[in-house]
Design a protein around this nucleic acid. Structure first.
Lengths: 303, 303
DNA sequence: CATTTGATAAAGGTTTTCTTTGTATCAGTA
DNA sequence: TACTGATACAAAGAAAACCTTTATCAAATG
């Protein structure tokens, strides 16, 4: 009962014949041509028979090999079907459920970098992305709550507005500078005890006394931010979510950043159990932690 | 185009299902059950799906796996055929052509030790053995000539006889002790210039003057040795070939071993080119050199 | 209840396998 | 013919996969 050895050699061999070149096989396998050559040579040595007639312009199986070729193809075609059935490609996907604002304004803009490095990893974030949503536990959950998980960073909440609105401030009441100006609120800031907004900010830093809870309510930060950029008014927003906008000048912070509130909870990352063993998630989490760390440092600089 | 990874895991998986136990698969693969478990677990981790329902009494594939099982079997059955076609089993064989006497009296008796350690390696020595002879170059050639190759040891040639014959010596001519006693010759000793026999021995050490080339001729040492043990007469024989017989007392050397001739050439080992890369030959050559070294030292002790 | 058998876990070591780097060879082209 | 680009080959060191060992645990067996 001969148990097959040199499986990887056989795989390389089969591919090399199919592709007609070591290079071709190497590309498919995602390794170097030299490695493919070594795989095949090692089998040839083991059998002490030549299997491939090599030439620059294409390969040919030797007679020895030719007799085995049909079975060889059969085998690896079958294995490919196994591969598909067992859903190997799932291991190329990452499914994330996260705080909407954070996902839209922090994660997604930065994700392009990661995907450039890892074009084969597909994402599904809050149900949308490269691949359709799946049933079952997502790979990662990222929220600003106290349910545990690894801390990414704790956000700062600061007032922002469109650049044109700065002028209006200057002309205004010298004591209560914000009095009467249009406020934008996030639904969450109103409803959620732990999500500080204008009310808390005015309470702490002054600048306005009346109607601190009045103004337009937005369902999510992305829309509110859009409005801010159109100079609709003033909002209190996670600094981490708008660092780039501030840098680019599409929005401004009318008060010193020292006048900020601190988020009740940091953003935390929770990994589906078992997920830490999957290579694509290892990569992604590593990148995520590093990128979050960058943000954390930028926030610290602005204190 | 998903290229299949974890080939060995899939192999282990397939075998485990077929055998119904990790242990069974391990035995077939020639590795430990723990290793089989690891192979399969690594795939399960990679896919983050269970594939096998383990229990002491048998394994069952999970539903996930069940769908892939047909293809999995197809694949590895096909690979087995490939294996056979490419003649993997040749790599379990060692084909030796060697000096007949050396093979029969030195190699074969010692070979049992090696085969005990390596029960899967099959031998064909001078056309006979576990497997039939093959066309083409044998893996090893071992002869006492000057055609090059690695030296095993140089034999000493000494007179031997059956234990009962010693008494006859004692009663005999005090000067020419061997005069008139029955001599056994090997055909080679007569025909081959470089194969010293009685003629050369008497010439060098005396003990007999007439008819040193007379007596019975044998085609090979094994038969002659058999006759010696039956006290048929006296022969000159390679010491290495009869060390054990001397030790056991089934034969004796009537003269001090210092009265020996030296073989014209040592035994030399020549490996078929390319053979050094085959694992079974590496093992065997290593064993052979070590064992030959032992013999060499025993010969040196007897000088 | 003791024993045996088989699965599991962790640690450590070994072997494979891969990448890197540099060279040689061939086919097509100027 | 010399040049150029693509490919195969070789060797060495690095990385990853793989295996063994040892010990533990649980079910099956006597």
């Amino acid at each position: 009962m001969p148990t097959t050895t040199h499986l990887r050699s056989l795989q390389a061999l089969e591919l090399a014949v199919r592709q007609g070149s070591l290079k071709g096989a190497a590309d498919v396998l995602g390794i170097t041509p030299a490695a493919v050559g070594q795989r095949i040579r090692s089998l040839e040595d083991y059998l002490s028979t030549d299997l491939l007639l090599r030439s620059r312009s294409g390969l040919r199986p030797t007679r020895e090999l030719e007799h085995a070729l049909t079975d060889l193809h059969t085998a690896f075609k079958a294995l490919e079907r196994v591969t598909e059935t067992l859903d190997f490609q799932r291991t190329r996907e990452i499914h994330i459920v996260a705080d909407t604002d954070w996902a839209e304004l922090w994660l997604v803009p930065k994700l392009a970098d990661f995907q450039e490095e890892n074009p084969n990893i597909l994402f599904c974030i809050n149900g949308i992305g490269d691949v359709p949503i799946r049933l079952g536990t997502p790979d990662l959950r990222i929220f600003s709550d106290d349910d545990g998980g690894e801390v990414l960073f704790r956000d700062l909440l600061v007032p922002i507005t469109g650049p044109d609105n700065l002028r209006r401030l200057a002309d205004w009441d010298p004591v209560n500078q914000m009095e009467g100006l249009p406020l934008l609120h996030l639904k969450e800031q109103i409803e959620n005890e732990n999500c500080p907004g204008w009310v808390d900010w005015f309470e702490k830093f002054g600048h306005r006394e009346s109607g601190t809870d009045r103004g337009v309510h937005y369902n999510n930060a992305r829309l509110a931010l859009k409005a801010v950029k159109l100079n609709v008014g003033f909002m209190v927003c996670g600094l981490s979510l708008v660092l780039r906008d501030l840098q680019e000048g599409t929005i401004v912070h009318p008060f010193p950043l020292s006048q900020h509130l601190t988020a009740a909870q940091p953003y935390r990352l929770r990994l589906r159990s078992g997920a830490e063993k999957q290579p694509q998630l290892q990569k992604f989490v590593e990148w995520l932690m590093a990128t979050a760390h960058e943000t954390k440092e930028k926030l610290a600089l602005n204190l």
